[in-house]
Design a protein around this nucleic acid. Structure first.
Length: 271
DNA sequence: AAAAGCCCCTGGATGC
DNA sequence: TGCATCCAGGGGCTTT
């Protein structure tokens, strides 16, 4: 579920409230994608310095080491002074002097990994290959276009891979390509500079807009206070197969690329 | 180096 | 009502 906007909305909803907190205890539920990498008891007495985001990862900085959090497909974080007793899908909990942080993740594709210093092997491995941050100056249209040149895959899959630009998941890839007027099946290497510029701007626009709207809540996403997002109400193409395009009224098409659904308007989006 | 497939796992919607 | 099938917002890993 969570793409960059949902992860960023989650971060914004609890980062300032947890900053400066002292860890009282940590608790694990069922196994997540990877082992925590330390004894949860060792986290006690550390201080939370702040929360950053890299792509779809959250980095909880401690006075010693950091926690790397990923929400996977079905994860969401909660943060509150008190939380109800843990349910069957609550798999990580960090009790602090300023509130309890809890990861709920039914499918358990998510992860919480402890790393001792940011260049710890595991963190480097996970964050090392990530592409540019789309909402910062790090994401450059010319560099983006040059990188597209070496990719023969359909542009939709290049966006999803995260090697050129991070944070664009299945919803926002379809949405950004619609905004840019580019067919998702278009070979990345054949996208001209003007169209690459358009796509670059579309990615930034759609992600920033989604953050402003609190993310997309398709089934179960909510921020750390349990509030839903409402970007999905504005989706131009995602999950709208057969419905009329909001611009030209042509029926939206659904295709499958790399085992994932892609939506586009056959009229507005040119190959 | 890049591309294509395969998994990890649970729950909700749909169809018989 | 019950059961089988398909689908879902991600992404690391292995194999071509």
């Amino acid at each position: 579920m969570p793409e960059l906007p949902e992860v960023e909305v989650t971060r914004l909803s609890f980062a300032s409230r947890i900053a400066g907190a002292r860890v009282l205890s940590a608790r694990l539920g069922k196994p997540l994608r990877w082992p925590l990498g330390c004894d949860p008891a060792d986290l006690a007495d550390r201080t939370v310095l702040g929360v950053r985001r890299r792509g779809k990862y959250l980095l909880v900085d401690l006075d010693r080491g950091l926690l790397l959090l990923h929400l996977g497909m079905s994860g969401s974080l909660g943060f509150a002074d008190r939380l109800p007793p843990p349910g069957p899908h609550d798999h990580f909990e960090l009790a602090t002097s300023q509130g309890v942080l809890r990861l709920n993740d039914p499918r358990r594709f998510g992860a919480v990994v402890y790393a001792d210093g940011e260049d710890a092997a595991q963190a480097v491995k996970l964050l090392g290959g990530l592409g540019a941050e789309p909402l910062t100056g790090d994401f450059d249209a010319l560099v983006f276009h040059a990188a597209l040149k070496s990719r023969q895959s359909p542009i939709k899959q290049v966006l999803l891979a995260g090697a050129l630009v991070v944070g664009v998941g299945n919803i926002y890839a379809s949405e950004a390509l619609f905004l840019a007027g580019i067919r998702p099946t278009q070979r990345a290497s054949r996208i001209s500079l003007p169209r690459a510029r358009k796509l670059h701007a579309a990615i930034r626009q759609v992600l920033a807009e989604a953050v402003r709207k609190g993310g997309s809540t398709l089934r179960d996403f909510s921020n750390a206070h349990g509030e839903a997002g409402h970007f999905q109400l504005d989706a131009m193409v995602y999950d709208r197969a057969g419905q009329p395009c909001r611009v030209c009224a042509a029926p939206i098409k659904r295709i499958v690329q790399g085992q994932r659904a892609t939506y586009f308007c056959p009229q507005c989006q040119k190959p």
